[in-house]
Amino acid sequence: MSGVEIRRPRADATRNRQQLLDAATRLFASGQAEPSMRAIATEAGVGIATLYRHFPTREALVEAVYRDHVSRLTAGARELICQLDPPAALRRWMDLFGEWIATKNGMLDTLLAMVESGEIAHARTRTELLAAIDDILEAGRASAQIRADVPAEDIAAALIGIFTVASLPEHEALAARLLDLLMDGLRP
């Protein structure tokens, strides 16, 4: 053993980081223009120096929020399969996907610049999300509760279309109706 001790972050530092991620997510999802870093710090109840200690740039914060949501979506698929029958799990996952899309809209300019520069690998995210959808579809196929002829790519395309037409939060009821229609079409 090398004798190097790995320090865990202090509890307050971990809490502050999570508060910042949660606040940024709320503000990004609010549908307003990209919020300032100061507004995010204020929303999180921390000082601007604390925000910059955790996220030295806007890009670092956007990437952390983005990765946090992708992680929630992929882990969420597995959790939902364990908690709900496959159609209910898929429908709930669609809601989570909509929340992610709404959050992306509030950080779109920064996010697009990061994808263009290669800082965020869009292809990797797409692969992870398709795998999450496929996990739920496989459970639905195995239980004969979801059609066997629908690939994950079709579900992803339909979701992007729905949330483009019915962006959250202003069109939440329309999005819910469209998602329910999509689910009706997925039943055998």
Rank of each mutant, 00 (worst) to 15 (best):
R187M: 07
R7T: 06
A158Y: 01
R126M: 05
E170F: 02
I40F: 08
R26P: 07
G98M: 02
T57C: 03
I146H: 03
R92T: 14
V65C: 08
A89S: 07
D85V: 04
A156P: 00
A44M: 06
A132Y: 00
T25S: 15
I162R: 00
A131I: 06
T74A: 01
I155H: 01
W100A: 12
V70S: 03
I120R: 02
G140P: 04
A11Y: 09
P169H: 08
D154S: 08
L178T: 04
L27M: 14
N16Y: 09
W93Q: 09
S143M: 08
D22E: 14
V46H: 15
T14Q: 14
Q83R: 15
D134W: 02
M114L: 11
R92D: 05
I40L: 05
R147D: 07
N105T: 09
D109F: 06
T103L: 07
T110G: 06
A13H: 09
L73A: 02
R126S: 08
L130P: 06
M94D: 01
V150E: 01
R67E: 07
D85T: 09
I101A: 08
L182H: 04
P188K: 06
L96S: 04
E172F: 08
G47W: 08
A113L: 14
A156Y: 08
R53P: 00
A77R: 02
L182Q: 09
H122Q: 14
I120V: 15
A176F: 00
I146R: 00
E153A: 14
A166H: 12
E138V: 13
T42G: 08
A49H: 06
L108Y: 05
F28Y: 15
T74C: 06
L129I: 14
M1E: 13
V150W: 03
D12S: 15
L174W: 07
D12I: 15
A173W: 07
D95T: 12
A88H: 13
T164D: 03
G118P: 09
L112G: 11
A131C: 05
L186T: 06
M94V: 09
T127L: 03
P87T: 12
T42E: 15
A102T: 02
